[in-house]
Amino acid sequence: MKAKTRTSSIKPLARERIAVLFSEAEKVFHEHPEYSDRYVALARKIAMRQRVRIDREYRRRYCHHCYRYLVPGANMRVRVHHGWVAVTCLECKKTTRYRVEKSHDNKD
């Protein structure tokens, strides 16, 4: 059998579609949160199929346990403590922690 070849134009297209799905999830969340969850599922499926990493800004917008789209104050809680950000999904009660990055701005 012939091996599948990937053209160089597919991965940028996949990243673009993932970005569009997350922007649509943000727009629709307050009327239909279940649509936002579906958009996250589709974005994950595209990323896995095309072997593309989801960008950090998008990865932090969904729960990695129940795959729900997260909005601060609506279905997630954010706490900052000793250099870590703790994000709690209020749907499944799981907590994810991220290290706070120090900015290296030189102020003269």
Rank of each mutant, 00 (worst) to 15 (best):
A41E: 12
T95R: 13
K27C: 03
H104P: 00
E101V: 14
K45M: 13
R49S: 15
G83H: 09
K2I: 08
P72G: 06
Y98K: 03
E101C: 02
A14T: 12
S103I: 12
E16G: 01
H82C: 10
K93Q: 12
T5R: 13
H32K: 15
R56A: 15
M1A: 14
L42N: 03
C66Y: 04
F22N: 01
L70D: 00
H32P: 00
F29I: 06
H64D: 11
L13M: 10
E26V: 01
R60T: 09
V87G: 02
R99V: 14
R49C: 08
Y62I: 03
R99L: 14
R61C: 06
E26Q: 12
C63R: 06
H82R: 15
I10M: 07
D105G: 08
R59Q: 13
N106V: 15
R17W: 04
L70S: 04
Y39A: 06
M76Q: 11
E91R: 15
R56L: 11
A43F: 02
P72F: 09
Y69A: 04
K93V: 01
R49V: 12
T95P: 02
S9M: 01
R56T: 10
S8M: 08
S36Y: 07
M48A: 15
P33K: 04
E24R: 14
S36V: 05
V28E: 13
C63W: 04
T95A: 05
R15C: 03
R44W: 04
K93A: 07
E26P: 01
V28N: 04
P33L: 06
E101H: 09
Y58N: 08
P12I: 01
V85A: 14
P12R: 03
S23M: 05
R51A: 14
L21C: 07
V20I: 14
S36D: 03
A74K: 13
K11T: 08
D105R: 15
R38E: 12
A14F: 02
A43G: 08
Y58T: 02
A3K: 15
L42E: 11
R49F: 15
D55K: 15
G73F: 11
K11W: 00
R6E: 12
E101L: 14
E101K: 14
K102G: 12
F22M: 01
Y69Q: 01
P33Q: 06
R53N: 11
R53Y: 05
A86I: 14
Y58P: 00
V87I: 15
T95H: 01
A43S: 09
H65V: 11
R79Q: 10
P12Y: 00
I46K: 01
H104D: 11
S36G: 08
S9F: 06
N106M: 11
A19G: 08
R99H: 12
G83F: 11
T95S: 09
K2S: 10
R56E: 11
M48I: 09
C66D: 04
I10F: 05
Q50R: 13
V78H: 03
E57H: 11
H64V: 06
A19Q: 04
N106D: 13
K94W: 09
